[in-house]
Amino acid sequence: MSKVIQVGLIGFGLSGRYFHAPFLTINPKFRLKKVASSRPDAVRQFDASIEWVASTDELLADPSIDLVFVCSPNETHVDYARKALEHQKHVVVEKPFALSEQDAVQILALAQRQGCLVTAYQNRRWDADFLTIKRVLAEGSLGTLIEYEIRYDRFTPVSPDSQNWKEQPGIGRGNLYNLGPHLLDQALHLFGKPDTVQATIRSIRPNSRVTDYLDIKLGYTDKVVRVESSYMVYHNQPRYSLHGTAGSFIKGGLDVQEERLRRNEMPDQADWGIEPQDRWGTLYRDGRSDVLESERGNYTPFYDNLYDALVNGVEPAVTPSDIQQLARVIDLAIESSQTQRTVAF
């Protein structure tokens, strides 16, 4: 493999255009060579030097492509990942990696047989708020953690005639596969495998044809862990509530990177990922409250680690074990919601 990784993107919607393309463009370790998309004008507008092709097959047939990012609709992820691996390409799959643990295991096994790397894109591990949470926990400011709650909400009313694919009913649609993987991956990254899963997954918005609300409790013997998300929350406060034997930490607001990427800003600016003060969290302990400056968010480490995994053989940041564990929790959340029971991991 060349020292500069030749990259192909499948899909050029929100994920491909606004999350991956900017970071691949500014990173000299990668060259975004080709995009398979139904939006040729968007590709050319972003960078006229990128080759556009109309089909995934055309992209995969290019022997110079080392690495493929699957950024297409959820239900196509497994099929495109399988095809890319069969063409001896390394693969990064947008969340959700797969729609079941069984499918995830099959893709991971195929990658191993092919001698290729496959991983999942879990960029929210590098959000400012989550990095700050990790710092607070590492410093022991809360004592022994007793309760961890995270919300990730949006306000997205839906019209009856919406044509957005994310609002169409079908396999792999709904909030569990959209914001759910972010929340669950963060919790699993912090605390590991749970003992039990209890979930409520439902639709709450007028005219909604997909599940748009989730409330999932991960059972651990020493702490309460709860993740929630709704598409019908206008004010996104608070996001994180952590309580321990010595104090509490409360934080609101969303990481700034997505909003800046959507404004067509490139992530090589000097102030990239710095949160404004009104999004900083507050630590409560010892009879006082202290506003804590947030860590700086930046998704670049995901790509740097990906390069090192491909070229130098280091472990990918999102491991096969991480991928299978998350897929299993999602399966169990569906089972729990359908049966209205707490299920064992």
Rank of each mutant, 00 (worst) to 15 (best):
residue 325 Q to H: 10
residue 308 D to Y: 04
residue 325 Q to F: 01
residue 304 D to Q: 14
residue 306 L to Y: 08
residue 305 N to V: 02
residue 315 E to F: 00
residue 332 L to P: 02
residue 307 Y to H: 13
residue 325 Q to L: 15
residue 313 G to Q: 08
residue 318 V to N: 09
residue 340 Q to Y: 02
residue 334 I to S: 00
residue 317 A to E: 13
residue 319 T to K: 10
residue 325 Q to W: 10
residue 334 I to Q: 12
residue 330 I to T: 10
residue 330 I to M: 15
residue 315 E to C: 04
residue 312 N to C: 02
residue 323 I to A: 04
residue 327 A to L: 08
residue 311 V to S: 10
residue 315 E to G: 00
residue 342 T to M: 12
residue 313 G to S: 06
residue 344 A to D: 07
residue 344 A to Y: 09
residue 317 A to C: 04
residue 301 P to K: 07
residue 339 T to W: 01
residue 334 I to F: 02
residue 319 T to A: 07
residue 322 D to K: 03
residue 343 V to T: 09
residue 326 L to Q: 11
residue 312 N to Q: 11
residue 341 R to Y: 01
residue 336 S to M: 05
residue 301 P to D: 09
residue 329 V to G: 08
residue 317 A to M: 08
residue 303 Y to N: 02
residue 340 Q to P: 00
residue 313 G to A: 09
residue 317 A to L: 12
residue 307 Y to L: 08
residue 330 I to C: 09
residue 344 A to E: 12
residue 310 L to Y: 02
residue 340 Q to C: 09
residue 314 V to K: 12
residue 312 N to S: 11
residue 322 D to M: 04
residue 332 L to A: 06
residue 303 Y to E: 02
residue 308 D to K: 13
residue 308 D to G: 00
residue 305 N to M: 03
residue 344 A to F: 09
residue 326 L to M: 08
residue 332 L to I: 07
residue 341 R to W: 00
residue 319 T to Q: 05
residue 331 D to A: 06
residue 322 D to P: 01
residue 324 Q to R: 15
residue 327 A to V: 06
residue 311 V to D: 05
residue 339 T to I: 00
residue 306 L to S: 08
residue 315 E to K: 11
residue 321 S to F: 02
residue 329 V to M: 05
residue 333 A to L: 06
residue 314 V to N: 03
residue 344 A to I: 13
residue 324 Q to E: 15
residue 319 T to S: 15
residue 306 L to V: 05
residue 333 A to P: 06
residue 342 T to C: 14
residue 307 Y to R: 03
residue 326 L to G: 07
residue 337 S to K: 04
residue 311 V to E: 12
residue 330 I to K: 05
residue 341 R to I: 01
residue 344 A to W: 10
residue 301 P to L: 11
residue 326 L to Y: 09
residue 345 F to K: 02
residue 337 S to A: 12
residue 338 Q to G: 08
residue 328 R to Y: 11
residue 338 Q to N: 14
residue 339 T to F: 00
residue 314 V to A: 01
residue 345 F to H: 08
residue 316 P to G: 03
residue 303 Y to R: 01
residue 315 E to I: 08
residue 309 A to Y: 03
residue 310 L to V: 05
residue 342 T to L: 06
residue 336 S to R: 04
residue 308 D to L: 13
residue 306 L to P: 05
residue 300 T to E: 14
residue 340 Q to M: 11
residue 340 Q to I: 01
residue 329 V to C: 07
residue 322 D to C: 11
residue 345 F to W: 15
residue 315 E to S: 11
residue 326 L to R: 10
residue 326 L to S: 07
residue 304 D to M: 10
residue 303 Y to W: 12
residue 339 T to C: 01
residue 344 A to K: 12
